[in-house]
Amino acid sequence: MSASQSPIPLDNTMGASLIGVICASVLYGVSCVQTWYYFNHYRNDVWYIKSLVGAVWLFDTTHQILISHTVYYYIVTNYGNPNSLGHLVWSILLEVLFNGFIGLLVQGFLALRVWRLSNENIPLTVTVVALVLAEFASSVAFTVKSMRLQTWGELGQLKGLSITVNIVGVVADILIAGALFFFLHRSRTGFKKSDTMISRLILFTVSTGFLTTICAVASLVSILVWGHTLIYVAFYFGIGRLYSNSVLATLNARKSIRGLGEEDTDELSFSLQSFSKSGSKPMTSSRPTNLSIKIDTMQDYESRDSRQQEPESAATDGSFH
C-alpha cells in the first residue's frame, strides 16, 4: 500500500478515495461475473485452478468490503465530525494485506507460466518468485506496523516501505509480462492458425501486465508528488481488482483461444508426416523449441479431451512444456 507523508486533509481529498471505491466496485462486479462464468463453463478444471479462482474471488470480496467500510466511516458515519478525519480507521490498513494476497496468487500463477514457457529456466523463475515474495512481504510488514498507528501523520513514518511495495510490484509486473511475451513470441510454429493463437496469448499478457503496471506507477507517482493527499488510493484500490480480472479473463478465454490453434491440427500432422518421410528438418536451428511446444500442446489437448476434461493451454496454467 501507499502511505502518506504528512497529516492529510481528508475533508479535501476524500473525494479521491470515493472515486477509487466506485471504480473498484465496478471492476469487482466484472470479476464476480467472470467468476460465475468460470465455474459454469470450466467445471472439469483441475482442483488447483478452481482453488485459485475461489481464493482470488474471496480476497477480492474482502478487499472490496474493507475499502467500502473506509469511505463509509469517514463520509457517512462521521459526517460533520472533523475531529475523526485525522485518525486512521482499521479497514484502510487491513485492506493492504488482502491486496497483497491477491497479488501473491495472481503473480505466483504467472510465475508458474514463466517457469513452464521458459523450459524451466531457474535463474529467471527464481528472480520472478523473489520479487513476488518481496512485494507480499512488504505488504505484510506495512500492515503489521501500520496497525499500531493512530493518525495519518504517524503513517508518514512508513513512507519508505509503502514506496517499496509499489516499486517491487512494478518491477515484478514488467519482468513477468516481458518474459511471457518473449517466450510466447519464440514459440511461433510457422502455421497461420497456431500463430494467431499465440498472438492472442501475447495480447492478453501485454494488456493485463500493462494495466496493473500503469496503475501501480500512478499510485507511486501520486505518493511522491501529492503525498499530503489521498489521490494515490484512487489508483491503489483498483490494483487488486485488475489482477483478479486479468487472471479470470485469461482463464475464461481458453476455449476460444484453443479453437484458433486446433483448426490447423490436420495441417500440422500432415507436415510432420511429410518431414518424417523426406528426412527434412521441420524447423530451422534458430527456433529449435517451437515444434515441440506445438506438438506437446496438441497432445495435451487430445489426452485431456479423451478423459472429458477441460484443456489447459498456456493461457491457463502454462502447459507449454
Rank of each mutant, 00 (worst) to 15 (best):
A172V: 07
D173S: 08
D173A: 13
I174K: 10
L175W: 03
I176L: 03
I176S: 01
I176F: 01
I176V: 09
I176R: 01
A177G: 09
A179S: 05
A179M: 04
L180I: 10
L180W: 00
L180Y: 01
F182L: 11
F182G: 00
F183Y: 13
L184E: 06
L184G: 01
L184C: 04
H185R: 14
R186H: 13
S187Y: 01
S187L: 11
R188C: 15
R188D: 11
R188Y: 11
G190M: 08
G190A: 15
G190T: 11
G190L: 13
G190P: 04
K193D: 09
S194G: 13
D195E: 08
T196S: 08
T196M: 08
M197R: 09
I198N: 00
I198C: 01
S199L: 11
R200F: 06
R200G: 15
L201M: 11
I202Y: 03
F204I: 07
T205C: 11
V206I: 14
V206M: 11
S207E: 14
T208F: 14
T208Q: 13
T208E: 06
T208C: 14
F210Q: 04
L211E: 07
T212V: 14
T212D: 02
T212L: 09
T213N: 05
T213F: 11
T213V: 10
T213Y: 06
T213M: 05
T213K: 01
I214K: 07
I214H: 10
I214V: 07
C215S: 15
C215V: 15
C215E: 06
